[in-house]
Design a protein around this nucleic acid. Structure first.
Lengths: 200, 200
DNA sequence: AATCATCTGTACTGCGCGGTATAATCCTCC
DNA sequence: GGAGGATTATACCGCGCAGTACAGATGATT
């Protein structure tokens, strides 16, 4: 609702967002009450409704934040996706992320999308756009490799990019259910091997 | 809670379960109220609490039902996974299923698992077991092919099976977010191509 | 027809939730 | 130092929700 102007206001809004992000990732948006967020973040109701119109706006803001975070974290990697080392780095980063959450969250973006995609069209579209940007980065990388002659000229770059996104999301989901990175690790390795099978 | 004994009782319980399954798949378990289920299924509260202890029990029952359904639907396919035609059939079946729901549900089992895995350990474990059985079927098929000499002897059957499960789940999730089967179709095709790259 | 368990209708309860109202502070800038 | 907006505290509201109470209907068995 109101954007914070002072330093203190920014911190308050930030605390709410960060705390909500953590809780949403663990127990979903519908499984988290506003009161819980306020208690954990040490803020009050008046503060919440000063910065957010309602819970839906919070959810969308948090989702946008998670997307922003992820894209920021991956921005460096995205630029290196024109090499095998780049894809290996991508895999390692994903696995490291899963491990750092002890496989409890899976993919915060994917989880929230899965929960709300059919009931909140804005969340669905934001997620779609996120996947699009991820795919675009992969397409850029693979295209560069193709142009440099490292990939066969008949390589289906678009389809492969979709494929990579699918594998990443699937791996994160399974690691959450299995509470283990084993299947994710195996899957990502095979994904990379498949990409390399297109070497010319 | 109480198992129904009469024919009428079975029908009532069945109506509640089927209706809940449909609603859970669309809007999640937490996004669906008991009253909504009762209204849509044309039953009353006393009937509900006659057959279920509480909402959690309903959720677990519905989840178990979805798993049972899926395994039943795939049982024939699972036995044919020792051939490329079997895997093609698997892909086609998944795509057909997504299309028949007009990409609104994704994977009912995966969606519910993603929503509740961290807060309901029983749901998480049931889902894990479901993935295990799926993987086991794939392992059986690939092992048979290996023994027949259709796959290279050094093929990583376990890892490939995990990989297939991951791709299937990822594809279903993305089709839900994108409201389209395109990326799923491309991904499944590439998955099959990768399997076939292990031909000896 | 009487019995008894199964099944069902209806009204209710209590509470947690999202959201509001109002007024009190804090901070900055003039 | 005080005016005025930004920020925060507290108390409250109404509703929808999960869950309960209890009486009534059904229907098979004897």
């Amino acid at each position: 609702m109101n954007r914070p102007t002072t330093r203190k206001g920014c911190e308050t809004r930030e605390r709410i967002m960060v705390c909500a992000a953590r809780l949403f990732a663990r127990q979903g948006a519908r499984g988290t009450s506003i009161d819980e967020i306020l208690t954990e973040s040490g803020t009050g109701k008046s503060q919440f409704y000063h910065y957010f119109r309602d819970k839906d706006e919070l959810i969308r803001s948090v989702h946008a934040l998670q997307i922003e975070r992820m894209l920021a974290l991956h921005s460096v990697i995205f630029e290196q996706l024109d090499s095998w080392e780049g894809f290996e780095l991508l895999n390692d980063t994903v696995l490291h992320l899963l491990e750092s959450q002890r496989f409890q969250d899976g993919c915060p973006i994917g989880s929230l999308a899965s929960e709300l995609a059919t009931s909140d069209e804005l969340v669905r579209m934001d997620t779609e756009q996120y996947f699009d940007r991820k795919k675009a980065a992969i397409v850029r990388g693979l295209t560069a490799m193709k142009l440099r002659g490292e990939l066969r000229p008949d390589t289906d770059v678009q389809g492969l990019a979709d494929f990579v996104v699918v594998v990443l999301q699937g791996a994160k989901l399974l690691s959450k259910v299995r509470r283990s990175a084993d299947c994710a690790q195996a899957s990502l390795r095979h994904m990379l091997l498949y990409l390399q099978a297109h070497r010319s």
